[in-house]
Design a protein around this nucleic acid. Sequence first.
RNA 1: UGGGAUGUCGUCUAACGGUAGGACAGCGGACUCUGGAUCCGUACGUGGGGGUUCAAAUCCUCCCAUCCCAGCCA
Length: 561
Amino acid sequence: MENSEKPVVSNFIRTIIDRDLESGKHKKIVTRFPPEPNGYLHIGHAKSICLNFGLARDYGGVCHLRFDDTNPIKEDLEYVQSIMEDVRWLGFDWGDNLFYASDYFEQLYEFAEMLIQKGLAFVCDLCQEEIREYRGTLTVPGKNSPWRERSIEENLDLFRRMRAGEFEEGEKSLRAKIDMASPNLNMRDPVIYRIKKAEHHRTGEKWVIYPMYDYTHSLSDAIECITHSLCTLEFEDHRPLYEWCLHNLPVPSYPQQIEFARLNLSHTVMSKRMLLDLVKNNVVQGWDDPRMPTIAGMRRRGFPPAAIRDFADRIGVAKASSLVDFELLQFCVREDLNQNAKRVMAVLDPILLTIENYPENSFEEFEAINNPEDPDAGTRMIPFGKQLYIEREDFAEEPPKGWFRLSPGAEVRLKHAYYVTCKEVIKDAQGKITEIICTHDPQSRGGSTPDKRRVKGTIHWVSAAHAADAEVRLYEQLFTLADMSEMEEGKAPEDYMNPESLKVLTHCKIEPSLASAEKGERFQFLRQGYFCADLDHSPEKPVFNRIVTLKDGWARQQRKQ
RNA sequence: UGGGAUGUCGUCUAACGGUAGGACAGCGGACUCUGGAUCCGUACGUGGGGGUUCAAAUCCUCCCAUCCCAGCCA
């Protein structure tokens, strides 16, 4: 991936790493991105991916991709594959460092026997509900399990029989022996192994007991010699247990867990459960619906991966919970696309414009610059004729104050082509404008005149004889509520659905060259926004997604009045 | 009312006892064959009260607010 020329902004994690490197605690850093393969990755994960892989890159260390696959009933190979695709698409490479917690199951099992040998773990016969009762509450200490004082021999025997499949799910569990009176509920003899007679996507039916997250994660980090184990704030309370595991077992290294605030983005949700509900209830059209904050959705929408990386850099990393404005992401997307997207002309809501003094059945071509920000992008030829389509919005029969575009008697520039002046407006029986009659100034060919007269308005157009029809999908924010954590009691995200989040336009007129766009190819539709050829796009049936609009100074000015 | 954390412009984030800075959003202007881009200018902040200090966002103290935790999920 390309080097970023932007200065790196310091954050508390970099401060810790700087200190550890300076003190000699570590020579090289090792981080990891540890997803559970139970769903699709979203922009919140992208923050974590950019953080972990970015630190490894900046400090000359490495970052592992490790699947935290300890709960077979929720996990699936489909998710493993989508996660790898998403990480790669974002521009990161884990090289040989692909790991699975399930690869450590045997080692983890041996560690568990060691805990039993040390009297630090016991097999408990309490059922799930009883465990909950014995755990106490936030303010009331828990009670010891009646099975807490079993002998080491008995525990070992029972645990081995758990592994052998002699007990049913829920019948027994292995628990760490810590402190039922701890004010930290995670330390009240947490379950570290449970029986699950489920097929695992990688280990098949080899195991009927599976280790729990806290136990697995700390030890996996240690096994991989992770130096800095970055996770989100809700695991702060788990850190004592993370450290308990490391301190009580002969691990090869002592990773440091550091917590940071997860990303919240305005007008969307980040919880896997809520996203799953949107998909299941057909509120959106799938995990890759362009409105989804999933990486797959953003990819389909047309967000460039570099823009997402830039976004991750700009939001920074800190410990305070925050809600980032969606506008910042849009800014990053525009900034990338302004540099990189080819300019083309497309008319979303066409109205016919006829140039009465232009010869019948005569056509010519104009050379158009592909990208004024990038001379290397070259030029292309665009056809022009007597009849054109222009944007209905670019004509006003009674123009408001400050209007630069077309109106009766007014002259505007057709981008790259001629100046035209509106002479007449033709309407149907309902009073709807069906055609605009203009004259052009032949002297203005190419977009300027010998007399150098100024024309304020420049509008886009396509030749009616050459245009292709296209479907264009306009996307906006998924929800009307900015801070979705403020949803009312009993309401679901879909109750806040933005009715304008998807608008499908079916008879848009596009430059002929656009029909042959590649799927995923991004363009600026002049004066309107950035668009990308959708997965559904084909030369016979062009389909474009609006990635993001252009900033609209006119609209802003209108809003103020 | 147990424990863990966090409060800096509207938003995100720097500053680590020494001029509160940047970015987005906003506002004003210049320029423009995209009302885009670009450029210039501008406003806006340390949750509150005490204290230590020549000097406090930073240290101490009390208060307030917000977030997280009672899965055999991660």
